[in-house]
């Protein structure tokens, strides 16, 4: 162990304290929100029929777990989300690559991409249902539509931002276009790929839940819509809590992947 001076020890202690304090306040904030929520419901400051309450959410979750439907609904949503996430990431990255390799096509298609990006994809809902039918297929298509345009645009700008000088360097070393692609463009835009994954975690959930609002027989989005219609806000809140946990978990997995690859 290295011996540190007194001032450095003090510095390290302050750093540690600051970190500790941040975490502490974070947890306290959560507890305060839950506590205040519970309190307002029990004191009837706000009608728990409308705002629900933490204890009612827990009760609802326990009920959902005991009749097995929580797993079913969570799994349906997770399955649809993962499908939309995977397909749109692959397709978007691929389309971006094609556009990168074909500058003429890129120039032609640029305004179309801009319009597609600006279009609220939910507007296509009725079309999707007519074209691919109701159920899982329509939901996954909605998820894909929401993710794919932003994936394509982000990856394309990632490919295009590879330094020109590095491309020249490859050329002076006699690299073929394919070698430039696989040894430079793709590895260099890996950080963009990770950030696309991070964006898509959120976007694919948006797409899936929106799809489930449109047409579904199961899933967390279904629970939310159903709960809203029959005024069971406990159910709505429970589904949202589960959704929060699932999205966080998926984001954490992507962050873990990033760490693993960076260390390699």
């Amino acid at each position: 162990m290295k011996k540190y001076s007194l001032s450095h020890k003090r510095y390290l202690r302050n750093l540690y304290l600051k970190d500790f304090f941040t975490h502490l306040v974070r947890v306290l904030l959560l507890l305060a929100i839950i506590g205040l929520w519970e309190l307002s419901a029990s004191k009837n400051w706000a009608d728990p029929f409308i705002t629900s309450s933490p204890s009612r959410v827990v009760k609802q979750l326990v009920a959902l777990i005991s009749n097995g439907s929580l797993w079913h609904h969570s799994w349906v949503t997770l399955y649809e989300t993962l499908l939309a996430f995977g397909i749109s990431t692959l397709l978007g990255t691929g389309v971006a690559l094609i556009l990168y390799l074909l500058p003429f096509m890129r120039r032609v298609l640029e305004p179309y991409l801009i319009v597609l990006n600006a279009l609220p994809k939910i507007a296509l809902g009725p079309l999707i249902i007519v074209w691919v039918g109701t159920g899982t297929k329509a939901i996954v298509v909605m998820g894909i539509l929401i993710c794919i345009v932003i994936t394509t645009i982000s990856m394309l700008s990632g490919y295009l931002s590879v330094e020109k000088e590095k491309i020249l360097l490859m050329k002076t070393m006699g690299a073929s276009p394919l070698q430039i692609l696989f040894r430079l463009i793709i590895p260099a835009s890996f950080p963009d790929f990770i950030s696309v994954l991070k964006i898509n975690v959120g976007m694919s959930f948006v797409g899936t839940i929106m799809g489930e609002y449109l047409t579904s027989k199961a899933g967390l989005g279904y629970l939310i819509v159903y709960g809203g219609q029959v005024f069971k806000l406990d159910l709505v809140m429970s589904a949202i809590v589960v959704l929060c946990l699932m999205a966080t978990l998926m984001y954490a997995l992507v962050a873990l992947l990033e760490k693993c690859v960076k260390r390699r």
Binding site: E165, K166, L168, K171, P187
Partner: peptide
């Protein structure tokens, strides 16, 4: 066209970070 008789060194080192 580029030939291996010539080596080019740029202003920046252009090392591949990965």
């Amino acid at each position: 066209k580029p030939t291996s008789l010539v080596g080019y060194m740029f202003q920046r080192d252009n090392l591949f970070e990965w």
